[in-house]
Structures are given as structure tokens and as C-alpha cells.
Amino acid sequence: MAIHKLACIEPGAQIDENVEVGPFAVIGPNVKIAAGCSIAAHATVTGHTEMGPDNRVFAHAVIGGEPQDKKYKGEPTRLTIGRGNTFRECVTVNTGTIQDGGITTVGDNNWIMAYVHIAHDCHVGSNTIMANGTQLAGHVHVGDFAILGGLTGVHQFVKIGAHSMTGAGTVLLQDLPPYVMSQGYPASPHGLNSEGLKRRGFSAESISLLKRAYRLLYRDGLTFEVAKTEIAKLFEGAAEEPASRLRVFSDFLDAVSRGVIR
């Protein structure tokens, strides 16, 4: 175990023998850290936090801090982190609250840049990118492969769909559907993330079908409910792979909580 002599490891912390901890790092008593992780100098991992293998935490990040919620009274809420994530300098990730599920989750292989904040009860999927200064309020859900541009701000309880993308300085006050690019304050839609979908192996048929769904939702002047009805008709005759991609879009629209950006 490569723990610097000036690191502070509190009694009770469970740290795999194959973990690096830099000088002046602090590891709390209720923390579990799996093999292959590195905790840089001056970083803090605290709270009831469980970290999977191969994560990197850079200087001055605080992982597992108390939720910034005035209702929080010290309950043992949790943070669970998967494998292969990068938390750059000054990232903050808070534990959950008992008013929700009591847990914040971060999946696998996320690239989380400097000064990102992930608030209490957020659920971040896998393979996302959050550029510098992205700020997630409480209870936000982020789907797999989403890309959030620098200084993106996300209102509490907003859902961000898989494979979506925001431009720098975007403010999301409502849900962002899967596959959609957005920009602005407040955010407005700016087309399908076609190039990203091609890079991730989506077929031409799938992208074409999703473009039709996008037009129904954003270009044909339909109400939200009518657009959902018309999108459902696109499943007729669709092959298995395009239909499965469209299902992600359709199911998201059926589960929106704050309305979608329009």
C-alpha cells in the first residue's frame, strides 16, 4: 500500500493494499476504496463512501461530503462509485439524503473535470464527460454517454438522457431527451447528436429513425402529447436495432418529470 506518511487515514477506513494515497490526503472512517485507486495530495474521501477499482481522485477534490441540504441532520447517507472514473481538481460529490433514496451514485468510466459539483441524490450513469465547472443540483439523473459542456448548470430533479450533449454555459431547467444537443440559457434543442451516435456504432437506419422522432418532437409544431403519439407509430416496421434505440427516446418522454426543453 503506497500511502504517504503525511496522509491521514482515519481508523475504520477499508483500503485495498493496491491503493496510492498522497501527502495530506484525508480518508474518513466509513470509506471503502478498492484496488487500483489513487487519491492525490490534499484530496478528501469522506462520508459513507464506497469506491470501486481504478478510480483517480485529484488534488483538493472532496468525495463523499455532506449534502448541501438544510434538512440534512447527519444521517448515514451514502455515495457509491463504480470503476475507472476520473475526478479532477476540486470536484465535489455529495452523499444522498433520506428525503430521496439516501444515496448518490456514479457509474463507470466517467471523465469529471475540474470544479464539477455533483449534489446529493444525483445518479450519474457511465461513460459521461462533464467539462470544467459543470454544476448538478440535487436529484439530477445523467444517462450513459452524456456530454456536458463547461459551466453547464442543471436544475434540481432534471433528467439528462443518454448520448445527449450540451454546449458551454448551458442552463438546463427541464429534461433533456436522449440523443439531443442543446445550448443556451434556458437550454433549447439544437439537433440530434448524429456525429456522436456514429462514433458509438449506431447504424444509419437508427440515426435516420431518431431524426424522424426529433422532427416530430421539435420541428412539426406538434404538442408534446401528440408528438409522443406520432413517435410511437415509428415502431411499426422498424428493425430490431433501430427500434431499440427509439425505445430509449420514447421511454424517456413517457417518464419526464419537469417537461422537456422545447
Results as ranks from 00 to 15, higher is better:
Cys90Gly: 03
Cys90Met: 08
Val91Met: 13
Thr92Leu: 05
Thr92Trp: 08
Thr95Ala: 08
Thr95Leu: 07
Thr95Gly: 07
Thr95Pro: 01
Thr95Trp: 01
Thr97Asn: 03
Thr97Ile: 10
Ile98Phe: 08
Ile98Arg: 12
Ile98Glu: 14
Gln99Asn: 12
Gln99Asp: 09
Asp100Phe: 06
Asp100Arg: 08
Asp100Gly: 08
Asp100Ser: 14
Gly101Asp: 13
Gly101Lys: 15
Ile103Tyr: 01
Thr104Asp: 10
Thr105Phe: 03
Val106Asp: 03
Val106Trp: 06
Gly107Tyr: 09
Gly107Asn: 04
Asp108Ile: 08
Asp108Gln: 06
Asn109Tyr: 15
Asn109Cys: 08
Asn110Gly: 06
Asn110Ile: 08
Asn110Asp: 14
Asn110Cys: 10
Ile112Trp: 04
Ile112Ser: 05
Ile112His: 06
Met113Gly: 10
Met113Glu: 09
Met113Trp: 13
Met113Val: 11
Tyr115Arg: 09
Tyr115Ala: 05
His117Lys: 07
Ile118His: 01
Ile118Val: 14
His120Ile: 12
Asp121Gln: 03
Asp121Gly: 03
Cys122Tyr: 00
His123Gly: 00
Val124Ala: 06
Val124Tyr: 11
Gly125Thr: 06
Ser126Leu: 12
Ser126Thr: 09
Ser126Ala: 07
Asn127Thr: 02
Thr128Arg: 09
Thr128Ile: 15
Thr128Asp: 05
Thr128Lys: 08
Ile129Val: 15
Ile129Gln: 06
Ile129Ala: 12
Met130Tyr: 11
Ala131Gln: 06
Ala131Ile: 14
Ala131Trp: 05
Ala131Gly: 03
Asn132His: 12
Asn132Ser: 15
Asn132Gly: 13
Asn132Phe: 12
Thr134Arg: 02
Leu136Trp: 11
Leu136Ala: 10
Ala137Asn: 09
Ala137Met: 10
Ala137Trp: 01
Ala137Pro: 04
Gly138Phe: 00
His139Thr: 03
His139Gly: 03
His139Asp: 02
His141Glu: 14
His141Val: 04
His141Pro: 00
Val142His: 05
Val142Asp: 02
Val142Tyr: 02
Gly143Phe: 06
Asp144Pro: 03
Asp144Arg: 12
Asp144Met: 13
Phe145Val: 07
Ala146Pro: 09
Ile147Val: 15
Leu148Val: 13
Gly150Lys: 13
Leu151His: 09
Leu151Tyr: 12
Leu151Gly: 00
Leu151Met: 14
Leu151Lys: 11
Leu151Phe: 12
Thr152Trp: 08
Thr152Ala: 13
Thr152Asn: 07
Thr152Lys: 10
Gly153Ser: 01
Val154Phe: 02
His155Met: 05
Gln156Phe: 06
Phe157Met: 12
Phe157Trp: 13
Val158Met: 00
Lys159His: 15
Lys159Pro: 02
Ile160Asp: 00
Ala162Asn: 08
His163Val: 06
His163Pro: 07
His163Ser: 08
Ser164Gly: 10
Ser164Cys: 11
Ser164Pro: 07
Ser164Ile: 07
Ser164Tyr: 15
Met165Glu: 02
Met165Pro: 01
Met165Ile: 12
Gly167Asp: 05
Ala168His: 09
Gly169Leu: 14
Thr170His: 02
Val171Asp: 01
Val171Gln: 00
Val171Lys: 01
Val171Met: 01
Leu172Glu: 00
Leu172Arg: 04
Leu172Asn: 00
Leu173Gly: 00
Leu173Lys: 00
